[in-house]
């Protein structure tokens, strides 16, 4: 079944166009090959899995995934990652929205300086060594609350930056009308402004969640006990122990990447838009 062709001028199909399209597919293939390789290898038996190739598995071995979940502590890792990322995201987005709103609406000298200091955090490096000292000071080292607090602190700058740009586009007249109608600051923000921020809040939440899920360096420094490790650290550790068993390593990698890929497929619009629009808006 084909739809009737639209009456528009067809460009002649040239060799150049064909070459371009072939090239585009080769390029996409170069991104997909490593992923397919991981998928194929993850189903191989132990004997097959000693080498990494596209050779079709001689026997399909889904038991690898069970092995990996048991030996690699992926279940606990998944729950930890989920806890850290979701709590971290909710708190970050809420606090950042409140701060960005005030910074954007009341541009006093002090607020502008504060905004600049916060946004500087997007680019400045973190001093992890001194951070350890501070974490000890607050008794946050090697604790779940500590790692969540860190994720929040690190994600505040970009989230404030993202939301700040959006708040400027919500008309101030709304605030004025609400205040005249007797709205207090808290009701104004939570009942009127926050719902209007929905698009940017979703973008901020998806990006924040993705960033926290993928975080590796923070838990590496600040989580000593394996029971508190997020998925990323669990898989890294697993790799160290089973480096020659590619089938198991691949299954582990695949399971760790799966949540992110699902998130990407569902929220592609927000991820790509959010990560690139800040760069080119103008």
């Amino acid at each position: 079944m084909t739809a009737p062709a639209l009456p528009r001028r067809r460009r002649p199909i040239t060799g150049w166009t064909v070459a371009k399209n072939v090239f585009a597919w080769l390029l996409s293939a170069s991104m997909l090959v490593p992923l397919l390789l991981i998928i194929v290898t993850s189903f191989k038996s132990d004997r097959d899995g000693q080498t990494m190739s596209f050779a079709w598995p001689q026997e399909w071995n889904p038991a690898n995934f069970v092995t990996v979940i048991q030996k690699g502590k992926l279940g606990a890792g998944f729950l930890n990652s989920l806890l850290y990322s979701s709590v971290g995201t909710v708190v970050t987005v809420l606090l950042a929205a409140m701060a960005a709103y005030v910074f954007s609406r009341r541009r006093s000298r002090g607020n502008q300086i504060l905004y600049l200091v916060v946004v500087m955090g997007i680019v400045l490096p973190i001093n992890y060594v001194a951070l350890m000292k501070v974490m000890q000071l607050f008794a946050l080292n090697n604790s779940r609350i500590g790692i969540i607090a860190l994720y929040i602190a690190v994600n505040i700058p970009f989230t404030v930056f993202l939301i700040y740009g959006f708040v400027a586009r919500i008309p101030v007249e709304l605030d004025e009308a609400a205040v005249i109608d007797g709205c207090g600051p808290i009701r104004l923000f939570f009942l009127i402004i926050l719902p209007l921020m929905r698009p940017v809040l979703i973008t901020a939440a998806v990006l924040g969640f993705l960033g926290m899920w993928n975080e590796f360096i923070m838990p590496l420094y600040f989580l000593d006990s394996t029971a508190k490790w997020p998925m990323n650290l669990a898989v890294y550790n697993f790799f160290g122990r089973f480096e020659s068993k590619w089938n198991l390593v691949s299954a582990d990698v695949l399971l760790t990447a799966a949540p992110v890929i699902v998130l990407y497929l569902v929220c592609q619009k927000y991820i790509v838009g959010g990560q690139t629009v800040g760069a080119v808006k103008g």
Binding site: L124, I156, V160
Partner: peptide, 29 residues
Amino acid sequence: KKKIYPWYFAVGALVFYGALFVLPGLIGV
């Protein structure tokens, strides 16, 4: 404006950022 956009809205973000980002940066030096 001070009443409608109260300063304490920004406190949460500033506390996390200040304590775990700015503070280590400063004492690190």
